[in-house]
Write a protein that binds this DNA or RNA. Sequence first.
DNA 1: CGGCCCCATACCGAGACGGTATGGGCGCGC
DNA 2: GCGCGCCCATACCGTCTCGGTATGGGGCCG
Lengths: 100, 100
Amino acid sequence: MSLDQLQAVVTIAEEGTLLRAARRLHISQPPLTRKVRALEEELGVALFDRGARGMRPTPAGHTLVASARGILAAVDAAAVSVRRCADGRGGEREGPGPER
Amino acid sequence: MSLDQLQAVVTIAEEGTLLRAARRLHISQPPLTRKVRALEEELGVALFDRGARGMRPTPAGHTLVASARGILAAVDAAAVSVRRCADGRGGEREGPGPER
DNA sequence: CGGCCCCATACCGAGACGGTATGGGCGCGC
DNA sequence: GCGCGCCCATACCGTCTCGGTATGGGGCCG
């Protein structure tokens, strides 16, 4: 599991189709297919229901999307905290707090 | 920034030297050097002080280690939640809560 | 029934990742 | 003061994953 894959899952869930998600992620559709399938195989769980209309998240997929949003936000917050800690001054408490 | 790099930073901070951290991560020392340097350049911040004795985290490094621990725990919790959601039964509330 | 949209697969090239070998720097013991 | 050992940094190379293009199969709509 990688942050890349989590971002992919979140975007697909938001867009509903691989093509639109791929456009938003600045990649092509086939790599996205592989990313999702790889994650599904790694977890041993189907994350999306494929239909002729697009992809709809399964209950497991929905759960993962919710968790992934928090994780991605935490990563971003961590980067900000680290830069804050060394950029201007040299002392800051750990403050990635604003998660979820 | 990748989960791999976060894991590396945490392990290095715990072990104090690249060699011991590399052993724990089942990789070699040179790739670890590159991982850390890449992350430092990406953030524009020095994460460790290199001395003849080993590597000691800077304040920024310490901050990142703390955040990284929470993120990695959240990722693990997410995987568990997803599997729980689809493994036995088909309905579970989103419960990655125990983070940090 | 024809057309369209969407996902899946096959194949290929480039970039990233990891491993081995080697060098430079510093502290410690003799 | 000098040699030794530890540790991080760099150079080079093989492999493997990742992304892109081209193509196929399937279902819904008009």
